[in-house]
Structures are given as C-alpha cells and as structure tokens.
Write a protein that binds this DNA or RNA. Structure first.
Lengths: 164, 164
DNA sequence: TATATAGCCGAGTAATTCACTCGGGTATTT
DNA sequence: AAATACCCGAGTGAATTACTCGGCTATATA
C-alpha cells in the first residue's frame, strides 16, 4: 500500500476538472498552472485516467478533458486505483498466501485496514468535495491568481508584457 | 504515506514477541525462523523499535528481546510509526503549505484520511491481536512447524538428519 | 491550406526507498 | 575460552517516483 504525490495529484486534477466543468473541456496546461503540477506528468496521469474511463478527451484547439461521468458518480477510491495500483494494505493482495503459502500472523489486520481505507475513500465523491466550503475557498483563490497571471479564463486575454 | 513490508514485518515480529512472552526473552533468530523474515533485516527493525522504547534487549546466550510494556499498552500505530516515518497521508505533514505555501485543494481530504487510519491503528493493541482466534490458530501452526524443524522451543533438540 | 493548439506516446533520468546481505564488533552466560 | 546473540555501518540490486525531452497526431481557426 502506498499513497504518494501520484494519487494526490490525480485527485487534485480531477477535482479541478469538476470545479471548472461548466467552462467546457479543460486543458492540462490550465490545470498545470492552477495546481502547480508538471504538464508532462499530468499527461501521464491522464493517460491512466482515460484508460479507466474516468475522463474523456477533446483534441485540438479549445480542447482538453472532461469528466466521463457526473461528479457525484466518481469517488476518490476509483481515481487512486486508476493511477496507483491500489490501496490494499496486505502483501498477498487478499490471497492469504503471505507466509510460505499460508496466512501470516497479521493477515486479518491488513485486510481490516484495507477495508477501512477503501470504505472511507469510496464514500467520498468529487461532488462531495466540490460542495465543501474549504475547497471552494481554495478554488476561488486559485482562480483569482490564475486570472491575475493572464492565463485562460472564459475568454482569451492578449498578453502585453514579456511575462511568461 | 506508505505501508510496506517494513511496517508489516515490525508488527508481525512484535506480535510474535507478545505471543511468546512467557518464554522469557525471544531471540531474533527464533522470530526469523517462525515468521520467515531475514535476521539482519529484523536487527535493523529492532534497532528502531528499541529507540522508540517499545522493546528492551537482553544480551548474551539465552538473551533476546522483550516487550517494554504490557501488550495491552502497545498499539499497532506506535509500531508502524517507529519503523516507518508515519501513516500521514498529507504531503505537507499537516502544515497546510502543500501548494506554494498555501493549502492545496485536497488538503482536508488527506488530513481526514490520516485521522481515519491513525484512529483505526491506534485502537488496536497487541493484546487485542493475541486474543483473536485467527491469530492463535496461525501461532499454533507456526509453533508446531518450528518444533518439528528442531529449532528453539522450551529446550534444544539434537538434529539428526541433514535437513536445514 | 497553413498554423497553432492540445492531446498522445515512449524513452530516459536522478533521487529515493526497500529489502535485503556482509562483515565486523561487544556484552553475557556457561 | 567459547558460544551466543545483540549491535552497528556499509553496500547493493531492484523498483518506484516525479519528473524532462522529443516527437507525433487530430482538430479548430485564420
């Protein structure tokens, strides 16, 4: 079992998608700027998210990604599963062959823990997160910062200076 | 956050200690054989467990390790914390500086998850595990196998054949 | 039709961690 | 004196992470 930046990035990016769903397809470049995640790394993560049918893509200018389902129908556990192998805490993957073909001493502890974690992450959908006041506040801050920096909002803005 | 063989080995070894507490100090060689864990690796893990004051050691022949406290007073979370950094799921370690000095979009999700996991593992003591029927069954099997193979039990047994 | 956009894809890479091994100590009992 | 068993540090191969780089393809717009 592991939960690293990989899974965290994936959930953050998916939440960003959910928050800006009404703008149409969202480009990875936008997410990259708002969430401060490397664009190429996002591409890799979204390749997996697309294979898991959690998002669908629109190519060409004005394109980007869109949630494949309603935000209420996508839970955090699915997202982590899609990019990370799993949130299973056992070494045997639930097969009870952890200690020389037999069940190890602590087998039941790890299966219980896995259930606990999976149950928790399964019970939280993207919609649940979008509704949270804390999340909306952070999202507003990020949007303001993004617009101040001159990157894509509803419409394009001519860049005047030489700022990157 | 990560939960690998390292933390699992540590909990398994501590449980082995709790199960055989009445035999006096238990050597790592015994645990190594019973639980099928590399002796040198166990030494490394017990170095940490000793620093965390979860076990105390007895040197010399007949020596080994003993729980530093009653098995009811040692919970699984402590053991994992001792060998693994922590079971914290956030990237900022709870400092809320995950996204350019500010709180990231998914911050509260990871703190909630951390609390969930920690709460679960904090609520389980070694004594709780010792009492479980499944654990006792596995322990009996391991003890039988150990005695059949001729390694340390209550007394030494001469090895006759060339079996390793 | 040219061009820019933005998704796709594979290879490569430095750093880190895991799960060990190896080779030595040192304290204690018999 | 010898055996036991804890103690300690260094090293190692494999895997993973969090990226970068370079190039490709589909599509909208000028």
């Amino acid at each position: 079992m592991r939960l690293t930046t990989k899974g965290r990035y994936a959930v953050t990016a998916m939440l960003d998608l959910a928050l800006h769903a009404e703008r149409g397809p969202i480009s990875l470049a936008d997410i990259s700027k708002r969430q401060d995640i490397s664009l190429s790394y996002l591409e890799q993560l979204f390749s997996r998210l697309r294979q898991a049918e959690l998002v669908c893509s629109v190519r060409g200018p004005g394109g980007g990604y869109r949630l494949a389902r309603a935000s209420a129908e996508i839970c955090v556990a699915e997202i982590i599963d899609a990019v990370n192998e799993s949130v299973d805490a056992t070494s045997c993957g639930g097969n009870s062959d952890c200690s020389g073909g037999e069940q190890c001493l602590t087998h039941y502890l790890w299966t219980d823990l896995s259930e606990q974690i999976h149950g928790f992450l399964n019970g939280i959908s993207l919609e649940d997160m979008v509704k949270r006041a804390e999340v909306q506040e952070v999202a507003r801050r990020q949007d303001r910062r993004g617009e101040a920096l001159g990157d894509a909002g509803e419409q394009k803005v001519a860049i005047i200076g030489g700022l990157q």
